[in-house]
Design a protein around this nucleic acid. Structure first.
Lengths: 352, 352
DNA sequence: CTGAAAGCGCTAACAG
DNA sequence: CTGTTAGCGCTTTCAG
């Protein structure tokens, strides 16, 4: 095992001072070409690379971003990370990932661990539990310490910072409109409880779309999935809730606020003898592997997670590197476009 | 914006020396109870937290693990990460994630970036391109620098280090045996090209299972998917390869070395008029969301990614914290168990 | 019991 | 053109 060379070692070896070596390697004009050459050759030979930690301590910046998400085994978050990585890496930044597992405490711990010098800024989508508790002190504190935060997907009006969102309301309106245009008369929604902001907004879009088409709102057609937070029987729970809902209502189209709800509902519908899309149409939210490979392939609105991720990284890095004091207050929230990807769970408008 | 308190600031405020504050906070017995109390109170009030970077520089360890994987939008890797995170976090370590995107160059860059002091050790699954090129100098060099590596899933015999694997051969044997026991006479395999070690090994298990059952090997039943590395039309490419394969062979069971191949093959089979599992049975490898929600739900062998992740983290952290010189050479490779999760694409043995 | 000093690896202001 | 010095935040001898 060969130990890593340091400036000190090189300096001693070449019988010059540490600062000379440092300057030579950074091509300072204070140093003679001759010395530069000598130092560079030696450095290359011994494969010298500056120590990141020392640089971080010196510069008070680590060139790494902290990403905190509720869950990594989840296609949407995973695409966002890949967008972040992409942008960050190509701009010289690394990415530390912290998982909250939807737990408030873990979110706080992760934030605090990383806030002590490990990262320059955060990209975060808050845990459900945090949303439920409405306790945001950890976020306020890190901003107060001068560490910028970019929120995405699950964002908070209370926190003043850069944000990346999807226009949930407009997108849902669009999705529901699609269903109506394809001939659906009784469209239902499978959504989350209202404390999950994205669920609430998507429900709102659903309601607006109905109003716009002069369709009376039937509260029974809104299924809010109770999240019991016990992964083991969650799926079963989900299935029974959906099956009951389908049995007790006359529905010819369903808008589901995520893939899993959509897929589970399709399965339930199939088991109840419906054929898709003739008897009942489906549109999901968030395009992922499940949608593409479902049977039949699910029409879904794509959130462009990768774009959200790189946008988030871009906003954060810009803020970190901006020396412009006036920009300090100028927080943006960028809305990323969504598309509906038509697959085989919806009818064409003219077929209806 | 309140700036973070440092030892220096506290010391000045309390009119004592920096070292006194440091010692007081670490409960050194050199310090009087009175002073300790005073310092602690002040530190709590100002919410003092030691700066990680300074500690890292001082201690020559960062308490963070570098994880380098080919692809994050992939259920298996994602479960592994979650296992790593879990174990690492509960032992005071953070996790930096680097993605190689199956590219050799990106793998090298990531490794080098992180090796310069950012992390204490690596957990890595190598990129396909690296496997194809057989260029492992970056791995040798980081080990040579004294940075331990734990490899998982795609491991290399040439590299001497801790490894976490699945017994691919035995597992494949088991999977194919299951198919045979369920009455299959002509079982095919959809696998990768041989340079992907896991593909090669799984193919080997397939061959062994046939031999064991005195079934003649028909080379035509082995479909090695060409990976053209162009994501956009990859899927289409995959589909046509598989469809051709199904058309030109008589097959009543397929063992696929990953979920995607299995799902795609099921789709192709359905389109060709087969019914599953009556006409053709399927077993996949690597249990993920796709398998569970496929139509019909796919029988699959579970790799226990989360267990692999925490095992990897455990091995790495043990090695990092072991002061025992004798352990230095004692590299383990742990084999994690696999299970076959029976769902609806296979017949029961007694039904056959 | 407390403080001064050195050092982790690096940069930069300032002398020479 | 090169070297000395100080300092980033912290720990740890070693003196007092």
């Amino acid at each position: 095992m060969r130990q890593k060379p340091t400036l000190k070692i090189i300096a001693k070896e070449l019988d010059v001072s540490v600062s000379t070596v440092s300057k030579a390697l950074r091509d300072s004009k204070e140093i003679s070409d001759e010395t530069k050459e000598k130092v560079r050759a030696f450095a290359k030979l011994y494969n010298y690379k500056p120590n990141n930690i020392a640089l971080s301590l010196k510069n008070k910046k680590t060139k790494t971003l902290g990403v905190i998400i509720p869950e990594i085994v989840h296609h949407f978050f995973t695409t966002v990370i890949s967008g972040i990585e992409d942008y960050a890496n190509s701009h010289g930044y690394n990415v530390i990932v912290g998982l909250s597992n939807e737990s408030f405490d873990k979110e706080v711990i992760n934030l605090e661990m990383l806030a002590n010098g490990s990262i320059d800024g955060f990209i975060i989508s808050v845990a459900k539990e945090t949303l439920a508790l409405k306790d945001y002190h950890h976020l306020f504190e890190t901003i107060d310490q001068g560490i910028p935060i970019v929120m995405f997907d699950r964002v908070l009006d209370e926190i003043i910072c850069d944000k990346i969102v999807v226009d949930d309301i407009a997108t849902s309106r669009k999705a529901v409109q699609k269903l109506i245009d394809s001939g659906a008369k009784k469209v239902g929604i499978i959504t989350t409880e209202d404390y999950v902001s994205v669920g609430r907004l998507r429900t709102k879009g659903y309601v607006e779309a109905l109003q716009f088409n002069n369709i009376n709102l039937d509260e029974n057609l809104i299924l809010k999935i109770e999240d019991n937070n016990k992964p083991q029987d969650e799926l079963l729970h989900l299935e029974t809730q959906i099956k009951n809902y389908l049995k007790h209502n006359e529905i010819d189209a369903i808008f589901a606020v995520n893939e899993l709800y959509a897929i589970t509902a399709m399965k339930a519908a199939r088991e109840l003898g419906y054929s898709i899309p003739q008897d009942i149409q489906f549109v999901g939210f968030t395009d992922g592997v499940l949608s593409k490979h479902a049977f039949p392939p699910l029409t879904t609105v794509s959130q462009h997670g990768k774009a959200m991720g790189s946008q988030a990284a871009k906003l954060l890095i810009n803020r970190l590197e901006s020396t412009d004091e006036t920009e300090d207050e100028n927080y943006k929230t960028v809305v990323v476009e969504t598309d509906i990807i038509e697959r085989e769970t919806t009818l064409n408008s003219n077929e209806s």
